[in-house]
């Protein structure tokens, strides 16, 4: 009994620690106070209206959305074949290559951002939007490889061989038999990668520039000048949207086992 009480206490503390900040942000977003302060005073929806009306937030939201979708799609197109090759085949230097593929998830974002800045802006002189897209693709790639690999590992190779023995070419077997059965893994990879891109600060910080920013970068620079609950309101919107997307994907496909 004592043990279970202690367990409940620890669990509760972890939950408070994890969810507390969100609740704080959520509550302050309705505060009629002009600066972020806890506990909040009064009630207003005006910060939401303001957040949605600031043109820079709208513009950068679209930049984030487009960058996220494009980079995720590209990372998926690269990640699925790489994951497939790594699961199905043995080749020389496989371990080294696997390590290399996962390096963007291990190396600190600041380092990657700086390295990409040097490469894209100083060396290659690539337009900012393209650099941003390529940078995001690079950091998302290991996520797609890892999640797709996990779902491929659960899929028996015999099923594919059965398809081939019945007359499918290996390529046809991949599309007809493998892909439909790793669908939830693909969706999980896509969502995880997209959220990673949408939330990314360190890499975006280096790769954004005059006239081009992502939403998190814009929020950061807004906070340097204003300390009103607009950011709380915007954060709450993003949190709610994320929860809705992840929850519905979980309900429909049970993606949590792959992440």
């Amino acid at each position: 009994m004592k043990n279970s009480k202690l367990l409940i206490l620890i669990t509760a503390m972890v939950f408070i620690f994890l969810i507390g900040p969100f609740i704080m942000i959520f509550l302050t977003s309705f505060s009629s106070d002009a600066i972020m302060r806890f506990p909040p005073k009064g009630f207003t929806m005006s910060w939401y209206a303001k957040a949605l009306n600031i043109q820079m937030f709208r513009t950068t939201f679209w930049v984030s959305l487009q960058t996220g979708l494009l980079a995720t799609a590209t990372a998926m197109l690269l990640g699925v074949p790489v994951a497939y090759a790594n699961i199905r085949f043995n080749y020389r230097g496989k371990g080294t290559l696997e390590l290399l593929f996962s390096s963007p998830a291990i190396v600190p974002g600041m380092v990657i951002g700086f390295a990409l800045l040097r490469f894209f802006v100083y060396v290659s002189n690539i337009p900012i939007v393209i650099g941003l897209y390529l940078g995001h693709t690079a950091i998302l790639f290991p996520y797609t490889v890892r999640v797709v690999s996990a779902s491929l590992r659960n899929f028996e190779g015999d099923i594919e061989q059965a398809a081939i023995s019945l007359g499918s070419t290996p390529l046809h077997a991949f599309f007809a038999v493998v892909l439909p059965n790793i669908r939830s893994g693909l969706v999980a990879a896509f969502i995880l990668a997209f959220i990673t891109s949408f939330n990314n600060v360190p890499v975006s910080l280096f790769l954004t520039g005059p006239g081009v920013a992502t939403l998190p970068i814009q929020m950061l620079s807004y906070m340097e000048y204003y300390y009103d609950p607009t950011i709380s309101a915007l954060s709450s919107i993003i949190i709610v949207l994320t929860v809705i997307v992840v929850q519905s994907a979980e309900k429909l496909l049970g993606i949590s086992k792959y992440v």
Binding site: E156, D158, I159, Q161, A162, A163, I164, S165, L166, G167, S168, T169, P170, V177, P180, N181
Partner: peptide
């Protein structure tokens, strides 16, 4: 190649297409 052999294969774990 195996897809051109017209040989039936039955596996230990059935290997049915789950979908």
């Amino acid at each position: 190649p195996p897809n051109k052999r017209n040989i039936g294969l039955v596996f230990q774990n059935y290997a049915l297409f789950p979908h």
